[in-house]
Amino acid sequence: MSDLTLERSSQSPSAQPKPEHRRPRFAGRTRRDFWVFLAFALPNLVLIGVFTYRPLFTNLQYSFLDWTLGSKTARNIGLDNYVTFFTSDDAPRVLGTTGLFTVLTVGLSMVLGILVALALNAKVRGTTFARSAVFAPYVLSGVGVGLVWMFIFDPGYGALSWVLRSFGAKSPEWFNNPQLALTMVIVVYVWKNLGYCAVVYLAGLQSLPNDVMEAASLDGAGPVRRFLSISLPLLSPTTFFLLITTIISSLQAFDLIRIMTPLGNGTSTLIYEAYLQAFGAYNRAGYSASISVVLFVILLVITVVQIRFVEKKVHYA
């Protein structure tokens, strides 16, 4: 009898689990948070759509047209602009110049940047002034920097030619020789953007754990060994961030090239070739748009590859 009573009591309605009360999806605080989010995000989304994605799709549309800049009529020619670019003699030259410029500027900026950051991380007098001096060129106008360095590289009356003449040497023709012109632009671009890499690496160095460094020092590891085995792996997130930003910046470098080599003598990267085709002597707006689309695809592929494969080698902890 007691067993029967126990069984009935276990099946009583009061012992059954009560159904969970689900909160309405957009009730009370949730609805208010949604409208606050929308109020802050919507203006930015509208601006991004109008000034980023709309020009992007418009440029893609123009790349299928045979359109001369300023003309009121245009003819749809499909993929002919892309075929013309990749089958022309200019494509290997422009793509090669773009690749060489990007690899050298990114590599030199990052290597020299981390070396400068190591020097600025030393606890000596004057480091604050040195950090400001190193970072200053990055915030300067590219047009102003280009004009100053044109005076320095001028083979006739430039500062560099005066120094070389004082040693009995003759200044090279920086602006007339395509290889020297590209070298000149690379040097100036690295000088201008070196401070950015140095400051970012300096922030990464100052965030490294001191206890790990002290433990390695007690174990007998020298400065070079500590840097290669501890600091450099711990700086991999910083290196990954700089790799993405500097590659994108180098592929879009325009102002220094436009000021120092207006005709693109050996310095015609993809973005500058697009400018010359649209606003130079050709006025080929549709063809210029197709070159811009090629540049966009290259940027997209590089970024996806970096995020998909390079990020796997990054140590975040």
Score class of each variant (00 low, 15 high):
Val314Cys: 00
Val94Gly: 01
Tyr196His: 13
Val224Tyr: 08
Ser268Thr: 12
Arg31Met: 14
Phe227Met: 04
Val187Lys: 13
Ile48Gly: 08
Ser161Ile: 10
Val301His: 13
Leu47Ala: 11
Asn177Phe: 09
Gly96Pro: 09
Asn283Gly: 02
Thr68Leu: 10
Arg131Asn: 06
Thr269Ser: 14
Gly107Phe: 07
Thr52Ile: 13
Trp162Ser: 15
Glu214Gln: 11
Trp35Lys: 03
Leu140Gly: 03
Gly107His: 00
Val310Gly: 00
Leu104Glu: 08
Met213Asn: 08
Cys197Met: 13
Ser166Asn: 14
Gly142Arg: 10
Ser292Phe: 04
Ser171Trp: 04
Ala119Arg: 09
Arg8Ile: 07
Leu115Pro: 06
Asp255Trp: 00
Leu147Ser: 09
Leu256Thr: 03
Thr30Gly: 05
Pro137Met: 00
Phe57Pro: 06
Gly204Val: 10
Arg29His: 12
Gln306Trp: 06
Arg125Tyr: 13
Ala91Met: 08
Ala91Asp: 00
Ser290Pro: 09
Arg54Asp: 15
Phe240Cys: 08
Tyr82Ile: 02
Ser14Pro: 04
Asp33Trp: 15
Met184Glu: 09
Val134Trp: 05
Gly142Ile: 00
Ser171Gln: 01
Gly107Glu: 08
Ala274Arg: 05
Phe64Ala: 15
Tyr316Cys: 05
Pro178Lys: 08
Asp89Val: 08
Leu228Asp: 12
Thr102Tyr: 01
Gly78Thr: 11
Ala136Ser: 14
Ser268Pro: 04
Val103Asn: 05
Lys313Trp: 14
Leu47His: 07
Thr128Asn: 03
Gly195Lys: 01
Val116His: 06
Glu173Ala: 08
Ala278Ile: 11
Ser141Asn: 03
Leu202Met: 03
Gly156Cys: 01
Ser141Trp: 02
Glu311Ile: 07
Ser229Val: 05
Leu300His: 15
Leu6Met: 08
Gly280Asp: 06
Pro137Thr: 04
Phe151Pro: 05
Leu100Met: 11
Phe101His: 13
Leu218Ser: 09
Thr261Glu: 10
Leu95Arg: 06
Met110Cys: 12
Ser231Tyr: 06
Asn59Met: 11
Val301Leu: 11
Val188Ala: 08
Gly78Tyr: 03
Thr183Gln: 13
Thr30Ile: 14
Ser88Phe: 07
Ser161Val: 01
Tyr275Ser: 15
Met150Ser: 15
Val148Tyr: 02
Asn121Asp: 13
Ser290Cys: 05
Ile152Gly: 09
Val199Leu: 15
Ala41Phe: 12
Ile114Pro: 02
Lys192Met: 01
Ala91Trp: 05
Val188Leu: 13
Val188Cys: 14
Thr30Pro: 05
Val124Asn: 11
Arg225Asp: 07
Thr127Lys: 13
Leu42Phe: 11
Asn176Asp: 14
Ser249Asp: 03
Val94Phe: 08
Pro155Gln: 01
Thr84Met: 03
Leu242Asn: 04
Arg25Lys: 07
Trp162Gly: 09
Thr267Asn: 07
Phe129Cys: 14
Phe296Val: 06
Val148Ala: 06
Val143Cys: 02
Trp67Asp: 09
Leu118His: 14
